[in-house]
């Protein structure tokens, strides 16, 4: 019986369950959602299918600040997760030795608790007079009116924390595959430390990060940028080697790509962190959509915003893939 299936058809047969699942639980609801976005009316008087495409322009005009904020928070969280996750993944892959599996387990261990619970526990631990800030205030190390919760930093930190494993695991997989013999070959071919280059990259990286952080918390960026640039330069100077720049990093790019997408996409759409750790001024587009659906029951606008978000993410990802793709091709040119 099985032998009668033509060989060429086997891959398609294997795809069938997955495709079926997607059609049933993704494509069909998405289509439904699209139709809903073109309704007019309200919950009490009922809705009509009016094909009101104008709602998209309306939604974009009204809510673009939330979209921009979501992209900024998501982007920053992704960048932070990358900066934390890359050294972590690198260390586990190259220096983990026999503890590799234990360390990897620790990376994913937070997943054994629910996302919501972990975020709520942040709220408790980092409360204005909670476990961390309380003693610090009592000792006079930080001012009495210092607040961590209800700030953009808290939201971004929360997102970063929650999504860090999504960044770390793909990076680890990519780095683990890098053959250390290639690094020996690079050293054999005079790839040594990368002092000036490393310092410049470190300074630029640190500076950008500090600048973005200053923008988010709305303080004067000058001092933080200067400090971060110096620190970055020192780190870059001593940690980045030429074999890393020429071999390890380019070979880990698929992991960078996968990790940053797996982090960025859920980060942009997130509303839990903004809800629990933020305030009204840190609301993301996810919060708006959630409110439109569940509290205001403005289904058409909620659906339209979902689609706008989806389109924005797809466009962003395509641009990103384009940039990283060409980077990979030209990565070796000096």
């Amino acid at each position: 019986m099985i032998q009668r299936v033509p060989r060429g058809a086997i891959p398609y047969l294997l795809l069938l369950p997955g495709i079926g699942w997607l059609v049933l639980f993704y494509l069909y609801p998405a289509l439904q959602l699209f139709l809903v976005s073109l309704w007019t009316g309200n919950i009490t008087q009922g809705y009509q299918q009016t094909w009101n495409f104008g709602i998209y322009a309306e939604g974009f005009n009204e809510y673009w600040p939330w979209i921009v904020r979501s992209a900024a928070y998501g982007g920053l969280a992704t960048l932070l997760a990358f900066l934390l996750g890359y050294p972590l993944a690198y260390t586990i892959a190259f220096k983990g030795g026999r503890y590799k599996n234990v360390l990897l387990f620790l990376v994913i261990a937070p997943f054994f608790t629910s996302f919501l619970l972990r975020t709520i526990s942040w709220k408790i631990i980092l409360a204005d007079n909670g476990l961390v800030l309380g003693p610090l205030k009592q000792l006079g190390i930080i001012p009495q009116d210092f607040q961590f919760l209800a700030t953009p930093v808290a939201v971004i930190a929360g997102i970063t924390y929650n999504l860090l494993p999504f960044m770390t695991l793909p990076l680890y997989v990519a780095l683990e595959k890098v053959d250390f013999r290639l690094l020996e070959a690079a050293r054999d071919l005079y790839a040594g430390p990368w002092r000036p280059g490393g310092a410049i990259v470190g300074a630029i990286g640190g500076g950008i990060l500090a600048f973005l952080a200053a923008l988010v918390v709305e303080i004067n960026p000058l001092l933080p940028v200067a400090v971060a640039a110096v620190v970055g330069a020192l780190i870059g100077r001593y940690l980045i080697s030429e074999s890393f720049v020429r071999i390890t990093f380019p070979l880990s790019l698929p992991g960078v790509f996968a990790g940053s997408l797996l982090t960025f996409i859920p980060a942009v759409g997130d509303f839990v962190n903004a809800d629990l750790l933020g305030n009204v001024r840190t609301q993301m587009i996810g919060n708006v959509i959630e409110a439109r659906f569940l509290k205001i029951t403005d289904y058409p606008m909620a659906s339209a915003l979902s689609f706008i978000l989806m389109a924005a993410i797809i466009i962003g990802v395509l641009i990103y893939a384009r940039i990283l793709g060409t980077e990979e091709l030209t990565g070796g040119r000096a």
Binding site: R181, A185, A186, D188, L189, A191, G192, G332
Partner: peptide
């Protein structure tokens, strides 16, 4: 990286992401 010695490795250890040209040019570029 400071020794004036080069190695042909047992498994070749060519850099998979670089072209043949860039592989050969690697040491000169460094």
């Amino acid at each position: 990286y400071k020794r004036n010695v080069n190695t042909v490795f047992q498994n070749y250890a060519l850099f998979p992401h670089l072209t043949i040209y860039e592989n050969v040019a690697f040491g000169l570029r460094r």
